[in-house]
């Protein structure tokens, strides 16, 4: 199996190279962004009487290849704000706190760039009180996050706010720390 896969990979790489012409390609496997991987010098003075001279366009030029199936998913990169999926709320509150703005802005940018992407915003509450009223409270929180994303340009068709109320607690303990963990909206993508 590994041999077959290796051959297939080699073939893929070769065909990719041939598409960029005769010059050697510089591969960028780190992600889906494209750009020029090698920059030529520009001959500008570096200051302090020293002059630098550019060598012109002698260096090889390459263009990056889209990572294709090898591209990492930015939503799963722990360094990306897109990996932040939970918005926590204070007791009896539906206000999205400012600390979540960077994450929500990143999700909105992702959704604006991918109009076929869908997210479900799942509202949750702690276990105290009526199940149906808690379902409505969770909905109010999910709705607050939905509105924040809509303001940032995400279309209605991409968003659905739903509630689990107190029915699917992440922490099943009966204490304040568990209650706080469960007062939450999760951002869940349709393709995950």
């Amino acid at each position: 199996m590994n041999k077959i896969f290796g051959i297939a990979l080699l073939a893929l790489t070769l065909s990719a190279c041939s598409s960029t012409g005769d010059k050697a390609a510089v591969e960028d496997r780190t992600g889906g962004t494209t750009g020029t991987a090698t920059q030529a010098g520009d001959g500008k003075p570096a200051g302090n009487g020293t002059e630098t001279t550019g060598l012109g366009a002698e260096g090889v030029k390459g263009s990056a290849i889209d990572g294709g199936k090898f591209a990492g998913d930015p939503r799963k990169d722990p360094a990306s704000p897109l990996s932040k999926r939970s918005v926590y709320f204070d007791y009896d509150s539906f206000v999205v706190k400012e600390e979540y703005n960077p994450a929500l802005e990143a999700h909105a940018a992702y959704l604006v760039s991918k109009r076929d992407a869908r997210v479900v915003l799942q509202g949750n509450t702690d276990e105290r009180g009526s199940r149906e009223y808690n379902l409505a409270l969770g909905q109010k929180r999910a709705e607050a996050v939905r509105k924040a994303l809509a303001v940032l340009g995400v279309t209605d068709a991409q968003l659905e706010a739903v509630s689990f109320g107190e029915e699917k607690p992440r922490d099943e303990a009966d204490n304040e720390a568990a209650y706080a963990e469960n007062r939450r909206v999760d951002v869940v993508y349709g393709d995950e």
């Binding site: 379902l135 909905q139 709705e143 659905e160 739903v162 509630s163």
Partner: peptide, 27 residues
């Protein structure tokens, strides 16, 4: 419907239900 669907109650005639929907955003 889109969103959450919950809190069903029967009308006494057994032909209608009251339900809570969030299709128009609020419950």
């Amino acid at each position: 419907f889109k969103g959450s669907n919950s809190a069903p109650a029967w009308a006494p005639d057994g032909r209608r239900l009251a339900v809570v929907l969030t299709r128009d955003q609020a419950s």
